[in-house]
Design a protein around this nucleic acid. Structure first.
Lengths: 351, 351
DNA sequence: CGCTGCTTTGTGAACGTTCACAACATTTTT
DNA sequence: AAAAATGTTGTGAACGTTCACAAAGCAGCG
């Protein structure tokens, strides 16, 4: 009975079309950068879009059979905040969010985060559900999910491009990785160059692919320098575990004079253990870390660390996925350079 | 010419309906917990959903005019990773992701993060675009966006429920906040109880609503104890800025014996400055922080801090928004309790 | 028994976009 | 100049779901 048309939502493509006096399809062509639109019409349409503040409805786009403009980033589901923060450096996710969102947004895409169980059977189901519900155009797998071949397989089956962070074996559509072996080697050689011959390595959790690679790099550098003894400790990225292992080393008859830790939190444990035993850093014990979160600058002394450019890696992964979906790019593996940042924990002055 | 029907996507509601021998609407009723479905039919439908692995397509649900099952979390857009990490404690976002995703997922919802400029004019437009594109059912505003009344207004106009984190004035649909005044008061009183009478406060960035409240709490506690002098420094949550301010205090004739910092990074600056000047913590300078990120446990000495339960706050915000959208809840303000965690930087033993 | 009212189920339309295809306009080729 | 190729625009259908409404089933009641 009431005359006013009730609009369920905002400005639609029809509004733009009506204003310009063309059909909805012509507007759609402009939105999708279709080549065959007269320049003059195109610019009038763009002006109308601007004037009306039109933004395409993502759900409708998806329904139309096109793309979803969504990249899905999988995170491991854990029960407690403590586990969540301990699973790797806690700023991993922070950097991921920055790199991923910035990169996606630049191309009009969006980034969605989903929790998926780490346990194999649940992981497959969790990913399948997320795919069915969100229908993303691409998926980013981070450690430890990137080391689960079943997930890679599922995505391949469905034809969904997938980027792996921190792993490379050519199975995923896009691999973005750091040369873990070289990085661990660089850390080790840095210590050797400073005269150390008794160098220990506290490793990361075994279900992270990087852990084995870093141990290998450490061993290779020792061998290359002709050093015999090695100390490899089983860590899990956590302070308390590392503290126990390092303290055992320092109390033994055979003590290392330097420690490399597979992440910052364990490097902090090295600083603490040294301090508790009255050892000076770097004079009595040098420390090198992997990760280089902002906090290592503020440690006493500041930590020398391998900087892993997580934000860059995720950004690269997103833009590569988008390029592939939009037909501009091809599957590829991108090696991202690491950097050894020298600070006082290995005797660098100043920093 | 080919006989096989090409399916653009996976299992749909029609597949479930066909298998059970009912109409799509009956299946839809089960999905949406509609009351009028015969129990026997309902369970057969649930079994079919399970058997087929059916998961509703979010985009189609949205198009059907229903809800989007999406909560949008707004983050401030910054240009560089450095700014991103410095804008508050860098594990804020990490905790946010954990609390938000866990809470949303538990009810079959999803959390999407978007970057929106902080600058007022751009902020409105940025939020409007995100709303038009994603059509979320609810929005979470964190500092500093939660202190922008224009954004609150935009959401109110559109009738989109909105949760504010760390702010409360009843304008938003849901407020989740900590008693900032009481927290700063507790930190101050803790120091007073230990005999300090010369207590300084290094504040957070001025565009964060919490900054003024914390200063107020600090002043109130001083007044309550009858202490006259005060040191309030303009900080911006960053190490270098805090270092400058604190160093100036410590070099003046009138030196504080304790410092309260509005976040962990600035508390680290206090530790560093003290150390650089040969002052012992806590004997010569006691330090209390706000935030309690995981790293403060590993500082030398470990930092006493007000713990702000960010993950809980976001989780609460999400579940409140969902309850409201689903008709179970009402607008409300939730005060989340803080905790003063005492460690060695104010003389606590052990920890 | 027939009416009323409640519960349960089904049908067509709608949401806003893209796809497939057709139609028309213009340019190039023969 | 006609035919063919190419560029540009429009139309109906489809995507998978929910909404609005209609219809059928079933109980209680006078």
């Amino acid at each position: 009975m009431h005359a006013a048309m009730i609009r369920r939502s905002g400005v639609t493509i029809e509004d733009v079309a009506a204003r310009v006096g063309v059909s909805r399809q012509t507007v759609s062509r402009v939105l999708n950068d279709s080549p065959n639109v007269k320049p003059e019409v195109r610019s009038r349409i763009l002006a109308a879009i601007e004037a009306l503040g039109y933004v395409p409805n993502l759900s409708a786009r998806r329904m139309g059979g096109g793309r979803s403009y969504l990249v899905l980033a999988i995170n491991d589901r854990v029960r407690t905040l403590e586990n969540w923060q301990a699973r790797r450096g806690n700023d991993w996710v922070d950097q991921m969010l920055f790199g991923g969102m910035t990169s996606c947004e630049a191309q009009g895409w969006h980034l969605v985060f989903e929790l998926v169980d780490t346990e194999a059977a649940l992981a497959r189901r969790g990913l399948a559900n997320a795919l069915a519900s969100l229908r993303p155009d691409g998926v980013i797998l981070t450690p430890p999910h990137c080391d689960n071949p079943e997930l890679i397989g599922l995505l391949a089956e469905r034809g969904i491009p997938c980027a792996r962070i921190g792993h490379s074996d050519g199975q995923a559509t896009v691999d973005v990785f750091m040369d873990e072996v070289a990085a661990a080697g660089a850390a080790t050689r840095h210590l050797i160059a400073q005269g150390h011959s008794r160098i220990a390595f506290i490793a990361g959790a075994a279900n992270y692919g990087s852990s084995a690679l870093r141990i290998a790099g450490y061993r290779a550098a020792l061998a290359e320098a002709g050093l015999a003894g090695e100390w490899v400790g089983d860590g899990d990225f956590r302070f308390e575990t590392a503290e126990r292992v390092i303290d055992a080393w320092l109390s033994g008859p055979d003590q290392p004079t330097a420690v490399i830790a597979a992440n910052d939190e364990m490097a902090f444990a090295a600083l603490h253990t040294a301090s508790a035993r009255g050892l000076r850093v770097p004079e009595d014990l040098a420390v090198v870390s992997f990760e280089d979160t902002p906090g290592v600058r503020f440690a006493v002394p500041p930590l020398t660390a391998i900087r892993q450019p997580v934000a860059d890696m995720i950004a690269r992964a997103c833009s590569s996925l988008i390029d592939i979906v939009e037909g501009r790019g091809r599957p590829a593996a991108h090696e991202i350079p690491f950097e050894l940042v020298c600070r006082a924990s290995t005797g660098a002055v100043g920093a």
